[in-house]
């Protein structure tokens, strides 16, 4: 099958065989069998089909729209399907300023997400309050929920958001399948008063 894309009067030929397929995790291979640990297989599957929940409040949300648009296309990384419902979402992408009025809402959304869940703070405001060091702005979402990846920028370019997303994928790929049972994770959530 041959797809033809037109871009700037150059023709790009994309052959199906050139489409990248993720590498298999390390394991023992022999004729007719392949053995690896369950964690790795699950990590592989999870990391390439993450459903992000875009919690877009301001400027970074517009850059996220650009990231989802045809030009940058987050769908290439297995995140084609946005989950606006927290119940089905895997990654909470917090984009934009979180005011103190919004903080309980954000925490509520995080609590509603099912395990396993990851959080990405996109942009300066979500990471640290950014330029808004004021009475009404939460100085970083890590005051109310734990964060896995911070993406710098005000707003970050779509490339940066994609990079941050890949860092989340790395985390998902390499961590234990049942992170939620670890003492460290329980302590972490305990610090935020969640459960």
């Amino acid at each position: 099958m041959l797809l033809i894309l037109q871009r700037d009067e150059h023709f790009l030929f994309i052959n199906m065989s050139e489409i990248n397929i993720v590498d298999a995790p390390p394991g023992i291979e022999g004729s007719g069998f392949f053995a690896t640990s369950l964690d790795k297989v699950i990590g592989l599957a999870r990391s390439n089909s993450l459903w992000p929940l875009p919690f877009a409040t301001s400027c970074c949300g517009i850059e996220f729209m650009a990231t989802m648009g045809s030009h940058y296309d987050l769908g290439r990384f297995g995140a084609e399907r946005l989950s606006f419902s927290p119940r089905q979402a895997d990654v909470l992408m917090v984009m934009g300023t979180i005011a103190k009025k919004m903080a309980p809402v954000l925490k509520q959304v995080y609590i509603q997400m099912a395990e396993p869940r990851w959080v990405m703070a996109v942009g300066a405001c979500a990471s640290s309050g950014g330029i808004f060091d004021t009475y009404s702005v939460l100085q970083g979402i890590d005051e109310v929920i734990p964060v896995d990846v911070y993406v710098p920028g005000c707003p970050p370019r779509p490339e940066a958001i994609l990079d941050g997303f890949q860092r989340i994928q790395d985390l998902v790929k390499n961590e234990s399948g049942r992170r939620r049972n670890s003492d460290y994770y329980k302590d972490l959530l305990g610090q935020y008063g969640i459960k």
């Binding site: 409040t57 934009g96 979180i98 009025k101 009404s136």
Partner: peptide, 8 residues
Amino acid sequence: TIGYIHRA
């Protein structure tokens, strides 16, 4: 109700 990203 508004004011959810009031940034002063």
